[in-house]
Write a protein that binds this DNA or RNA. Structure first.
Length: 212
DNA sequence: TCATTAACACGGG
DNA sequence: CCCGTGTTAATGA
């Protein structure tokens, strides 16, 4: 399929044709594999991604090296962090990792500001992106501050199903414990309870989500 | 009360 | 055997 068509699929409803064409002519396609680190903390950002396919995990890291999930990007999204580049900041405050195999268009950040003036649809897209990322981050904060571990775990499983488009999650209890910043004992116990309640089915290295 | 840590048994690859 | 998993007991917040 032509790149322009693929792009239109994810972003066509957002941008006018002139902008679509300009983006496709100036950007390049990048394909990444699950687990690839796209941008790490402290790196210079020169390209902004427009996600066509897959899911990207956006994380923050504390002094001890613990990772904190901020939000996910899905097709039609962009990384709001790159937007700060047009405001003079160029070092990344975050780390982005491919949650699944993914494809994106990369646009030089210098174009960002130009398009903000030139295209109304671009301005709208950027503002909406900021808003969406902010909302998702609020959801994450809520979950950390207010939700109990069993609710957080269930949310984690549902998000994973949604992001991967599959009801099978190939992660160990220890992996999940790290992501949720708890111990494996708790994860194993809560997963067992979910299984008893018929929400999931447990296997080795694999969790099947039945009800979500 | 509920999470964490350590410890142990079981069993599949 | 190694590792993921399921459980328990002790300890702490």
């Amino acid at each position: 399929m032509e790149l322009i068509d693929r792009f239109r699929e994810s972003f066509g409803f957002v941008f006018e044709d002139a902008l679509l064409n300009e983006i496709v002519s100036i950007s390049r396609l990048r394909k990444v594999k699950e687990g690839d680190v796209l941008i790490d903390i402290g790196e210079q950002i020169q390209l902004m991604p427009l996600l066509l396919q897959g899911a990207i995990k956006v994380m923050r890291e504390d002094k001890e090296g613990d990772e904190l999930l901020l939000y996910f990007l899905e097709p039609g999204d962009t990384c709001t962090m790159t937007l700060t580049c047009s405001m003079g900041v160029s070092k990344s405050e975050i780390r982005t990792i491919a949650e699944t195999d993914a494809e994106m268009l990369l646009v030089p950040v210098v174009k960002m500001e130009e398009w903000l003036i030139k295209y109304k649809s671009w301005r709208g897209f950027i503002l909406e992106s900021y808003n969406n990322r902010m909302m998702e981050m609020l959801e994450t904060v809520d979950s950390l501050a207010f939700m109990k571990m069993d609710e957080r775990l269930y949310k984690f499983l549902r998000d994973s199903v949604k992001l991967h488009g599959s009801t099978t999650i190939s992660k160990t209890h220890l992996d999940i414990a790290h992501e949720l910043h708890t111990s494996r004992v708790v994860v194993s116990r809560l997963l067992k309870t979910l299984e008893k309640n018929g929400k999931i089915k447990l296997h080795r290295n694999r969790i099947e989500v039945l009800d979500f």
